[in-house]
Amino acid sequence: MNIFRLFGDLSHLAAIAILLLKIWKTRSCAGVSGKTQLLFAVCFITRYIDLFLHFVSLYNTEKVMKLIYISASVFTCYLIFFKFKATYDGNHDSMRAEFLIVPAAGLACLINTKFDAIEILWTFSIYLEAVAILPQLFLISKTGEAETITSHYLFAQGSYRALYILNWIYRYHYESHVDTIAIVAGVVQTILYCDFFYLYITKVVKGQKIVLPA
C-alpha cells in the first residue's frame, strides 16, 4: 500500500459518500445518471465476485472495502430507481448503456491476461469502469449544468483513478509491478474527466456553478 493508492481509495469512498448524502439529504436524484450508478454496481459485483464464491473472513480491510463498495452502489441504485424514482431524470439519462456494456464484454473476451471466467469478469469490470461515467457526463451535457454537490462527486470520482495512475507509477518504479490492462483502462478513464476537471478547477473552485456550453 502506498500513499497514492490510499488517497485514491479514500477519494473513491468520498465520492460514494457525497453522492449518497446528496440524494438522501435533498431526497432527490436530479442531475444524477442512474445508468452510471448501475454500471458502477455491475463493475463492483463482477470485480469482487470472489467475495461471493468462497467466503473469506472479513479480517482485512480490503474485504470490508469491497463489501462497502458493493452495498453502497446497490443502495444508491435503490435510491435512484425505487425510493426517489419520481425525481429520476430519465429522459436526460438517455445514453444507451448497452453501447458500453457490449463492447466492454467483447473486448474482455479478446484482450485479457488469462481466458478463464473470473479473469474475464475482472477484465470486463475494468473496461466497463473506464467508460461507466459517460452516461453521467452525457446527462450533464444534455441538462447544460451540474449541481455543485454533483460536481464535487465527479471530482472525487475522477481523482480516484487519477491517483491510482500515480500508484501504478510508484509500484512500477519501486516494486516492478505492472497491471497493463488496469493501467491502460485507468488512463482512458481519467482522460474522459479532463474536460470536467478543467471546468471544475476554473469554475467550481471559484464558487461558480458549471454551466455548459462553457
Binding site: 493508492r5 481509495d9 469491497k66 463498495y69 491476461t113 516492478s176 509491478h177 505492472v178 497491471d179 488496469a182
Partner: peptide, 10 residues
C-alpha cells in the same frame, strides 16, 4: 523482472 497481472488492488 516485471511482475505482471496480479490484480491485488481494488
Amino acid at each position: 523482472k516485471l511482475i505482471e497481472g496480479q490484480h491485488d488492488e481494488l
